[in-house]
Design a protein around this nucleic acid. Structure first.
Lengths: 337, 337
DNA sequence: ACTCGGCTTGCACACGTTTGCAAAAGTCCG
DNA sequence: CGGACTTTTGCAAACGTGTGCAAGCCGAGT
């Protein structure tokens, strides 16, 4: 049984209203009693009941964040950015994992709604529009971060990286190195990021007047094993590619591993580019050339957007932020070591 | 303004008590009205207010977890285990980051206390005993997971891996491979895990009748750059070691990178062992031999312990769980590739 | 002395939910 | 038809906090 405002009131011989005001530094209470009450609260180990406060204040100073899984290094860094801004503004963050399962994603958002979070940021959403409907109606802003589904509604708020641009950047880098036969390991089917990065890849090829060869594109999963399997398929081709652009770093890392086991020298026999620039991209061997997403910034921007929507709902509604990725050249495409 | 139980009551023409009972499937309300109210709740998009419920129920079905940073892959996997068990039992998890700063760790716990979480799990704590005092007094169980500070109080609950055993395991593996000059890159000073892993290392050496050479132990940070710097120092020694046991995988990965740049062949010139078995240990090149912590299980056990302490506070108080790490042999100590 | 105004405090209600208790409605039996 | 049930419902209090309003106190001005 935690000590409440009333316990302090009893100990101080005042009403609980006075205690409430004192602890909120209201000018309506004299300096003397204010000090006395603060000291007492300290001694009694008082901690305000956030639930009760949220009840009357109609806000909880809490935002919910949905990620596919906490073990995803991409998500981790994005959340880091969110946390940072949230902390600076006195907001707490509640994390919920969707396990990349649409059903659990809905359940996660439902939990957050029950907690009466003041805003929700959903990363890598599969069913973004749905949340908008349930939460938006209740006045809770929803922000989609790198959503996998196309944004349909016009009142959608989102932050995302320009995947088409990134895919193009990656492919152009390989083209500039002289590669002409460039493969692509795609991401999970149905995700719009998968389609966009592929589109960027095709765009770059087209600009270089290289015909698109469907045989050079193979499906991946976005995780290392997907990359390992992809390499096998690429090596089985009658005419092997000299370079490959992978959907993301995890895929590329799996592919690198398979290459090493298969005796394929990277970058000599095969140049590899990833996407995301997760922390480990710099530490695999050879280190990975990749498209760096401004993950921290994306988190920060999303949180700032959330703050703006909460504080002043009539604010200028910058509804969609698109950031560009940046090419980071490392050994996997570099000159032969 | 979200719809409340009263709104439903008005729409259904009953009292709010009846609605409450109906939604909780109380047998005190007839099947007919129960169905009618459920349907209505569905239509009106009702979501129970967790704060209000927590107020009267005196529990929130929520546990707090403190991690140093979400971007730490070790923590991520532990949290995964916690989440899993929590979800299965209808509990939500609130994550708070301490940024490895004792002050922020306290602030994080304070936030959780305000949220009136039913239990707190603190990972890699620097000030574990402190929380026990504040929260334990309020009846909130605290569980320390791989705490860095020695447990002092007898009513401390903890889950941890046996670091001494792990350190010994790693070193014995290198000894078994014939190495006699084995270095150790230690972790952050002051952490008890650093001391324990070092102790295991010395123990194994002693058992093999190899004198301990302080010159072979260098300080690290637990992060890749620490490993990189450590390698430089080891190479500068008059008599180089033939193997090195690193405080953790992150350190080892940094060291591997430095070795590659320095032209040191692993494992031929230098065998390397890490600790933790983070997901990427299998994907660096050469893949990393390491001591696998049962991270998922640690999370699960901690959460189960929390459940036991909450449900039945008179339960058998298994207060300290110690799990053993497992040696995973990979290329970094294997036969020359 | 009386009033006025400023400072400080307390009373009471609200927020959304659960639950013990009492009351109403329905059912069965003699 | 009355009584003894059982089933279903509503009333009211409680949880911890914030806040509008009224009231108390005090000093100053007339």
């Amino acid at each position: 049984m935690a000590t409440s405002i009333k316990d302090i009131a009893r100990a101080a011989g005042v009403s609980h209203s006075t205690v409430s005001r004192a602890l909120n530094n209201s000018p309506l209470v004299s300096q003397a009693t204010r000090d006395r009450i603060w000291r007492l609260a300290q001694e009694m180990g008082y901690s305000p009941n956030a639930g009760a406060r949220g009840l009357v204040m109609r806000r909880t100073c809490t935002v919910g964040v949905v990620v596919t899984t906490i073990a995803d290094p991409w998500a981790a860094e994005v959340v880091e950015g969110i946390e940072e801004v949230a902390y600076d503004h006195g907001y707490s963050v509640i994390l919920a994992a969707s396990q990349d399962d649409p059903e659990r994603e809905v359940s996660a958002v439902e939990t957050l709604r029950s907690q009466r979070v003041d805003a929700v940021i959903v990363t890598s959403s599969r069913v973004g529009a749905l949340h908008q409907k349930r939460l938006g109606a209740a006045g809770v802003p929803v922000i989609l971060l790198n959503s996998h589904s196309q944004q349909l509604t016009p009142q959608t708020f989102s932050v995302r990286v320009d995947d088409v641009h990134g895919g193009r950047l990656a492919t152009e880098h390989l083209l500039a190195l002289g590669h002409r036969r460039i493969a692509h390991v795609a991401g999970p089917v149905g995700h719009s990021t998968t389609a966009d990065r592929l589109a960027g890849y095709r765009m770059a090829l087209a600009a270089a007047n290289i015909p698109f060869d469907p045989a050079l594109v193979c499906e991946g999963t976005g995780r290392p094993p997907g990359g390992e399997q992809a390499l096998a398929r690429l090596l089985a081709l009658p005419e092997r590619p000299t370079a490959v652009f992978c959907y993301n770093d995890m895929t590329a890392i799996g592919l690198l591993r398979a290459a090493r086991l298969a005796g394929v020298n990277v970058p000599h026999d095969l140049a590899v580019v990833g996407f995301d620039d997760i922390p480990f991209a710099a530490y695999v061997s050879p280190s990975l050339t990749t498209i760096a997403q401004p993950k921290l910034e994306m988190g920060q921007r999303a949180m700032k957007m959330a703050l703006a929507l909460m504080e002043n709902s009539a604010a200028e509604r910058v509804s969609n932020i698109v950031l560009e990725g940046r090419l980071v050249v490392r050994e996997s495409t570099g000159p032969q070591p």
